[in-house]
Amino acid sequence: MSEKVSVLVTVYNGESYIEKCITSVLNQAYINFELIIVNDGSQDRTAEIVNKYESIDNRIVNVFRSENKGRVFSLNEGIENCTTNFIFINDIDDFSSKERLSQSMNFYNQLNPLEQEEFGLLGTASYEYDEKNDHCKKYSIKFGSMNRKKIPEWRLYFGIPFVHSSVMYSKKALNSIGSFTEEVSSCIDLFTIIKIANKYKIYGINEFLCVRSVNNDSFFTSKNIDKKGLYNMEIIRNWQGNNIKYHKFIMTLHYLIKHSKY
């Protein structure tokens, strides 16, 4: 029998998206999973919708909280409720392709025992759906391939290589860094992946296994960053400087590439 995995969804006032998100998980070809839904004090119809699906599918674990405590708290609360070794993130306004869980687990199962022991996470390529303009765009993984591919740690100096709703985490790796950090108020996903990459191997495959919905410009696509983002990136860079031996070399390389005229 296939190994049981967890899918983690956190939601705050997500009545417009929650149904599509849930059904994309329940329709997975890989059926041995638990769906952990953390309701972060929603004031709309979110609880009603989640309750409806919980009553018809016993794989759903409904974690309801009346107080809104934010995304990081909710993610970490969800991790505490996950009972398996692997956690798939599915943001509320995104949805997974039918083969996401099966292809991701197939990738992991093809790793050798040492690689499995050192496994930190796997991210995939994705589609981005622009709701405003009704337009869908492909985002493949740079420095990736259609085959098994480790993503080098220095790649993370250039930004997150995949969207968070494509990531399958090793729970062991998440626990080793204290789960999602509260040190930053944005760039949370990037910081988490950087910390894991400093201890474990991270992988990416150019299979389009999730759809990310947007209704405005995002940092992932536009690379625009506000003052809060700049402040949080400074925190991340300081952490890298204190924890990664080749930090100065990579930062110099990053600067040269960024300012190259070619």
Rank of each mutant, 00 (worst) to 15 (best):
F64E: 11
A125D: 05
R71G: 03
H135K: 15
R100Q: 14
C82G: 02
N112R: 02
N112A: 00
I141L: 14
L122T: 03
F95D: 09
Q103T: 04
I89E: 00
T83V: 13
E118R: 14
S104P: 06
T84H: 08
T84E: 07
N68G: 01
I141K: 12
S102G: 00
N68F: 05
N133S: 08
M105Y: 03
S74N: 02
T84R: 04
G78V: 04
I141D: 08
M105N: 03
Q110R: 11
S74Y: 03
S66F: 09
G78Q: 03
I92M: 00
Q110S: 15
N90I: 11
N109I: 00
S66P: 14
M105T: 05
E77K: 15
P113W: 13
Q110G: 06
Y139T: 04
G120V: 07
L101W: 08
S96T: 03
K132G: 00
G70L: 03
S96F: 12
F88W: 09
F119V: 05
G78R: 05
N106E: 14
D134Y: 10
D91K: 00
E128S: 09
F88S: 07
E77M: 11
K98C: 06
E128T: 12
L114D: 13
L101V: 12
N68R: 11
F95W: 15
L111W: 10
Y108C: 02
G78K: 01
T124H: 07
I89F: 11
E77P: 01
Y127L: 11
